[in-house]
Every structure is written in C-alpha cells, then in structure tokens.
Design a binder for these strands. Structure first.
Lengths: 257, 257
DNA sequence: CGGCGGCTTGAACAGGATCAACACCTGTGG
DNA sequence: CCACAGGTGTTGATCCTGTTCAAGCCGCCG
C-alpha cells in the first residue's frame, strides 16, 4: 500500500493564517498579545480530495492535523477485513491525537470531502508549547474536548434504540454546524451510509430504515447526503435522554472562542 | 448535596512519594535528572472507601486525581434516572481529564474499593508543566492514552456479540493487572454486575449469562467478584477480532483455532 | 431468623441483523 | 442518445441475539 495523498501547498502561510477561521485557537501561532507572540510554527496548509489519506495505521507519527475545511474519517481495518469507523473530523477538529501515545498512527485517516488541513509537526509543537503557556493550554483543551466527545459517544452507543443513536448523531452534526456559523437545520453528511452504520454500531439497512422512519414521522427530510431537520425539538426529545452529560443546559458550555 | 468523601491524609509527602509505584510517571514531581528537578507540587495522598465520591457532576473543577491503588468508577445520571457508567479507573490512571475542557466535572466519580488517590490542583499543574517539558509530556501522554483507550472501547461496543464484549473487558483488566505486576489470570472485579452491564451496554442478565456460558465453556471460573481465567488463549480468540487497533500485542499469542 | 440487595436462571418477546431483491444515480462507451 | 455496469441506498421477509418480565437463589447484616 502506498501513500495516496495528493498534497498541494496553497498560498503563503501569512495570507492563509490571517483569514483562518480558527486562528484564535491555532496551535501553531499564539495570539499577538501573548508573551510568547513571535514564536510560531511554519505551517503549510494542504488541500486533499475525497479518497486521499492523511496517514495510515502503523506509520510513524509525525504530524497532528488541524482541519480547516472539509471532513476526514478515521477508521481501522478489523482482522475480519471489515472497516470500523472511529470518528469523523470537521473544521476545528484535530486529527491524530491518539497517535501521540504510541508514536505511531493507530488509525487510517481518509478524506471524505475536499478538505484543507494544517499539518503540525508534533516535535515542533512540543517545543513551542513548552515556551508558550497559551499554546500548551490550547492543546490540552483540545485533548480534553476529545475525551468529552468520546464519552458522549459512549453514551450514545450505550443507548439501545437505533432511533436515539441516529437522532443524537444528527444533532451532534447540527450543533457543530451551528458552531461553525452554518445552518443547524441543513446538514451535509459527506460520509456513506456504511460509514454511519459502522460508527453507530448499526447495520447499513437499519440506518436507511431509521432515516426513512424519521422522515415519515415528519422530523426531517432526507435527500442523498443532505438532511434537512424539520422538527428540531422532537428530534432533540428522541435523543435527549442520553444527552444530559453533554452540552445542553447552559451549565458549563463556556464559549472559549 | 454535600461532599461525602471521607478524606484522610496519610503520612508525609516525602515518604509516600518515595515508595510510590508511579513515581516515574508522576505529574507532580519531575525526575531527579530533569532540568526542572526541584519544581514540584505538594501532594497529599488521600484514602477513600467504597461509596465515597471524589467529585460530582457540575461541581467546579479543581483537581485531577491520580489513582495509586483501588478502583474508581465514573458515571452520569441520565434523565431517565438510570446510572450510565463511563469508565473504571485503576492504579496509574488519571481521573477527571474530561473536566479540563469545561471547567466543571462532567461525571460523578465513586470509589469502588478502598483507594489511595493523589489530588493534583490543575492550576498548579499547569504552571508546573509550563516550566517542565517532562511534566508537560507526561500529561499529554496520559491524555493521548485515554483517547486511545476510548477508541478501543468504541470498537468493543461496536462489536455485536455479548461474548466478545465480555471477553474484551476481561482481557483489558487482565492486561492492566499484568502491567501492575499482578497476576493476569486472577482478576478482581470490584464493580457490580450492573456497573459492568452499563459499561458494556448490555442488560445485567446478559452479563450474568455470558459469564456463566464462558465458565461452562471452560474459559474461566467465576466466583463472586473474582474471575480466574483458565484459557487465556481462547478468551483472546473470542475478543481478538476487535483488538487490532489496540495495543501492539505480539502476534504469537494466537494459538488455537 | 428474616429481610434485603445483588446475582442467577428461566420463558416469552422484540428490535435489529441478516439475506435477498430491487431502485437509483453516475459514469462509460457504443 | 441510449444501453449498460457498478456502486450506493432502499425495502421486504425471516431469524436470532439480547432484552424484558418473572421468579428463585445466595450472601450479608440487622
């Protein structure tokens, strides 16, 4: 298996960073008013296309990747030959936080949709973060966030019905889109039904059926990879039984951005 | 709700740290040959007993806790009133890494078995880690490890059969015990069947049945909260289909077909 | 001893998996 | 322009695993 990624540097670092939506939480460049301002990592954003791989399982760990646009899925191949999806990564997410521990990538990371990512050499990142409390804090925050998200997902999978899982899945994406300033009702799902099924621990057929059922119930309108949420409230009702540990109440949801 | 933890400082910091099994990976005290040696956090280990809580959901985040001995479970209360177990924490683990993000504890943490924990004030930890690359690296390693573990758990829950989940669960504990220098065949399960069921997303009855089935198959001997693994190889065979993403186990282990 | 919570066992049920067939979209080439 | 192929998604019928409901058992503590 060869590295299939088609990697194209775009523009210069300065111009892309200045317009980057995630500049305030960038791991490569502290804020201007930070004591460590001036320290930074040279970053070359890359554009990748559907089917490209950022990395594959067991390759030596070099970079973590911040997603600026598009969507990445991480997965492993079980020894049965099946693919098991581990996660989906959208703008603002960091890919390969799980590789730090072992020094090797533990997943495969495939691009679902034309994406822009910033590769950050982990060694450099460590040195930078050792000198910049702000960067260090950002990295740890991101990792803690990932742990929280995983726990939320465990709750979803711990729930029994396929409807609840699907509703929670859609709501998760709805919230993410809202955070990005996009519509929370018009959701794009760049992954296949098989990917969703694997992720939610369901059969492909069940995913299909559940979407149909939710549509017939008037909660949403499904068209290919686009889902329009019609009745957000009731969709929330279906999913919310499992969401208390999560972000809903105005309790700890500090904006941070 | 008041804090119910019975908290007893034991001995002086120096004596307890010198004999601590996890000194080499301690987040409060760098190695003697580290450039940051001399910097450290004053730690007061605490002994807690079954039923005590380290913290509860929504309490403001102050400390993370390293587990030196015993066992802690983290869980949330769903709005149905049911308890959903998030994780079990044994010696060497860190509790409350998920609270960093939001600044509040997102789980409840209950002691399952008389335990010794070191509370580490997060603010102090941050300051220390900003001055000690070694401490910073240890913390990030721990967080990455947690993320890897979560992904392994997602694989387990993604699997369909109850036997596979149970086998994976037992093997996980077996490996942890081995890492601690304890027997990998004689496993202590300080949590209730209901806890296991919740954690593995199964019914209590199923957990009971599966244990019985595995015992009748001659793979293990169950007695109360103690499980003796009789046929580690075959237990591994049952679980291994899902373990490839996991730790870099040597391949020779799979004997029987 | 009796009562209670945790655990196990049994019988019936149901939700999702599986198997199988079909519909739809897209691209290709005649 | 249409026919065809292949991948992807949907729908239907049947089966099976794990849930649910119910009862009984065991160990623990008053």
């Amino acid at each position: 298996m060869q590295s299939s990624a088609q990697i194209i540097p775009i523009r210069t670092r300065e111009s892309t960073c200045n317009e980057c939506a995630f500049r305030a939480e960038c791991l490569a460049k502290p804020d201007d008013d930070c004591p460590a301002a001036g320290l930074e990592i040279q970053v070359t954003p890359r554009i990748l296309h559907r089917g490209d791989h950022l990395f594959r399982t067991a390759e030596p760990f070099q970079n973590i990747y911040t997603v600026r646009s598009g969507a990445i899925k991480t997965y492993v191949i079980l020894q049965s030959g099946e693919e098991q999806v581990i996660g989906f990564h959208t703008p603002g997410d960091i890919v390969a936080l799980d590789a730090i521990y072992s020094g090797r990538y533990v997943c495969n990371a495939m691009v679902l949709d034309t994406s822009c990512v910033c590769p950050l050499p982990y060694e450099q990142l460590c040195r930078l973060s050792a000198r910049s409390p702000e960067i260090q804090s950002r990295l740890i925050q991101k990792m803690s966030r990932r742990i929280v998200d995983h726990e939320g997902l465990l709750l979803v999978l711990g729930q029994k019905t396929a409807e609840q899982r699907m509703a929670a899945f859609l709501l998760h994406h709805s919230r993410k889109q809202r955070q990005l300033g996009l519509s929370e009702l018009d959701i794009n799902l760049p992954m296949s039904r098989a990917d969703i099924a694997s992720y939610l621990a369901l059969a492909v057929e069940t995913v299909s059926r559940v979407l149909t059922r939710l549509q017939e119930a008037g909660l949403l309108i499904v068209e290919r990879s686009r889902v329009r949420i019609v009745d957000l409230d009731n969709l929330t009702v279906i999913a919310e039984e499992i969401m208390d540990g999560g972000p809903p109440a105005r309790r700890g949801a500090r904006g941070l951005h």
